[in-house]
Write a protein that binds this DNA or RNA. Sequence first.
DNA 1: GCCAACGTTGGC
DNA 2: GCCAACGTTGGC
Length: 135
Amino acid sequence: MNYWLVKSEPYVYSFDQLIKDKQTIWDGVRNYTARNYLRDMKQGDQVFYYHSNDGMEIVGIAEVVKASFPDPTADNPAWVSVILKPVKQLLNPVSLKRIKAEPALSEMQLVTNSRLSVQKVTLQQWRTILKMASS
DNA sequence: GCCAACGTTGGC
DNA sequence: GCCAACGTTGGC
């Protein structure tokens, strides 16, 4: 099982919207690094949901329902999508500010490569965030 | 609204 | 294959 993080601007597609929709297709990714991560996602993988620009915090957990397949919005089948469903909202969203202030998370891609829209999260980072979300 | 960081494009 | 120019993202 692997852990990931996806970013979305909440006014484009928020975690609340994902809860309402029950699941969504994660399409439109046009960055090679992000695409490679999407391709590595397996059914059951857990995904942090981060609100960029507005909020700037991890607000919830999603799960990969369907592993990667060609992105229907792309004309090249090399671009891929996955299907995500909501798992739960975090009790206390974990802000970028707190993440940056936490030494154990200094290697998170949110910190080191903030522009990447799909990121990999280590098990250790995952646990640290969960701990921060419950306190 | 600004601008730094990053990725992509295209001329050479 | 290098690198300047450009476009986009996202934090502040």
